[in-house]
Design a protein around this nucleic acid. Structure first.
Length: 270
DNA sequence: GCCCAGGGCTATC
DNA sequence: GATAGCCATGGG
């Protein structure tokens, strides 16, 4: 039974989302509590013993910001995805979807998504997280959340990142990706991130190839038909599907959710 | 020392 | 269009 002050949501598990590698700014801050930041908004989410979640924000903020961010306005869509995945003819897909129950694709800020996934290339998630967090600490704005009273750092906007010194970028320890970051920040400062509104526009940026462009489209533009193929997904394809993605025919419009479930399952299954 | 990490660029064919 | 070598950095 849900508690009186819990928000009952089907197909939503903040813990799995936090560990899914699609976002680098959701952080575990307590035994059952995570903090999320998007734009200038901050929220703390606690998994309750009843299986539901408590949000630290007001109902108005939930409806205006977090409902969208967590794709909680797409319940019917996820219901259909999970029904389809749990009855898939392929055992690996069934297991991956079952194991990932509660996964959702976040609607992240496009500029943050672009820069984060440029940093992600040939890198490890803890290192990506550290670089993103350091970037926010060094050049993000400090904002205080009214509900919790906690101060947090925003992800820098294009002008802030574009104006950052070389020494500051060096201190992020992102190696050869620093030139890619600078190029993307400069482009977005001069042309606006809004002009990066398609796969082709993203891939045209220096340092953005097929994989990062697909991640940008999936997580930043919410194009759920994108299926980014990284080393983990490629291993799954080779091991379980003879290197083929023919199974995607059964997931038109859901490819990105399936990809997230496979990625999470492969990395976290016991 | 080695290999690898949510890849992409460049040169070369 | 395909493939090979290279790219900084840090963990195992």
């Amino acid at each position: 039974m849900p508690c009186s002050d819990c928000t009952p949501i089907k197909n939503f598990d903040i813990e799995k989302i936090a560990d899914s590698g699609q976002c680098f700014r959701i952080k575990k801050i307590g035994a059952d509590t995570w903090r999320a930041i998007t734009g200038r908004n901050y929220v703390e989410i606690t998994k309750c013993h009843c299986g539901n979640h408590k949000f630290s924000c007001t109902e108005d903020e939930f409806n205006r910001t977090w409902k969208k961010y967590f794709s909680l306005d797409e319940d019917n869509y996820y219901t259909e995805f999970y029904e389809r995945g749990l009855t898939d003819p392929d055992e690996y897909i069934r297991e991956a979807v079952k194991f990932s129950s509660g996964m959702r694709i976040l609607k992240q800020d496009p500029f943050e998504t672009l820069i984060s996934f440029i940093i992600s290339q040939r890198n490890r998630i803890p290192k990506i997280t550290a670089a993103v967090e350091e970037m926010c600490c060094l050049i993000g704005d400090t904002v205080t959340d009214k509900n919790t009273g906690k101060a947090f750092k925003t992800f820098p906007v294009a002008s802030e990142l574009s104006n950052a010194s070389d020494a500051l970028i060096d201190s992020l320890r992102v190696g050869y990706r620093d030139e890619y970051i600078k190029a993307a920040a400069k482009f977005c400062y001069e042309h606006s991130i809004k002009s990066v509104n398609s796969y082709d526009r993203a891939k045209a940026l220096y340092g953005v190839g097929p994989k990062v462009a697909n991640c940008y489209c999936l997580y930043g533009l919410h194009q759920l038909d994108r299926f980014p193929i990284d080393v983990w997904i490629q291993r799954i394809l080779d091991k379980h599907f003879n290197g083929s993605t023919a199974f995607l025919e059964r997931y038109k419009g859901f490819e990105g959710i399936l990809q997230q479930c496979m990625f999470y399952y492969e990395r976290n299954k016991v």
